[in-house]
Computed example of a mutant assay.
Amino acid sequence: MATLPDIATHINLPASRLSLCLSAGAASLSIFVLFKSISNALKSEYPKIILSPKDTALPNLSQEEIKSLPYPPDALPGARNVDSPYGSIRVYEWGPEDGRKVLFIHGISTPCIALAGMAHKLVDKGCRVMLFDLFGRGYSSAPSPTGPNAIQYDSRLYATQILLAITSSPLHWSSFSLIGYSLGGGLAADFTSYFPRLVSSLILLAPSGLLRPTHITRTSRLLYSPTTPLPTRLLTHLVAARLHTGPPTATSLAHHAGFVPAFISSLQHAPIHAQQTRWGVIGARLDAQKAAPGDADAAREGLEQGKVLLLLGARDAIVLAREVGADAVAVLGEGNVEVRVLEAGHEVPIERVEECVEAVWGFWGSEA
Rank of each mutant, 00 (worst) to 15 (best):
T3H: 08
P5L: 00
D6P: 09
A8N: 03
A8V: 01
T9R: 15
I11M: 10
A15H: 10
A15L: 04
S16F: 03
S19I: 00
L20H: 09
S23A: 14
S23V: 05
G25W: 07
G25Q: 12
S28D: 00
L29Q: 08
I31A: 15
I31W: 05
F32Y: 14
F32P: 00
V33A: 13
V33G: 01
L34Y: 14
F35Q: 15
K36I: 02
S39K: 15
N40L: 10
A41Y: 11
A41H: 13
L42C: 10
Y46R: 15
P47T: 14
K48P: 00
K48Y: 06
K48W: 02
P53Y: 12
K54D: 11
D55A: 14
L58T: 05
L58W: 04
E64L: 13
E64W: 05
E65T: 02
E65A: 14
I66E: 00
I66D: 00
I66A: 10
P70Y: 06
Y71P: 01
D74H: 05
A75Y: 02
R80K: 15
R80E: 03
N81G: 03
V82C: 11
V82T: 04
S84V: 09
S84L: 14
P85F: 07
P85E: 02
Y86G: 07
S88N: 13
E93D: 05
W94V: 07
W94A: 13
G95Y: 06
D98F: 02
D98V: 02
G99K: 13
R100D: 12
V102S: 00
V102L: 12
L103D: 03
L103R: 08
G107H: 03
S109M: 12
S109R: 00
C112S: 15
I113E: 04
L115V: 09
G117P: 10
A119V: 13
K121L: 07
C127F: 14
L131H: 04
F132P: 03
D133V: 10
R137Q: 08
R137F: 01
G138N: 10
Y139I: 07
S140I: 11
S141H: 12
S141Y: 01
A142T: 11
A142P: 08
P143G: 05
S144R: 07
P145T: 03
P145E: 11
T146Q: 14
T146V: 07
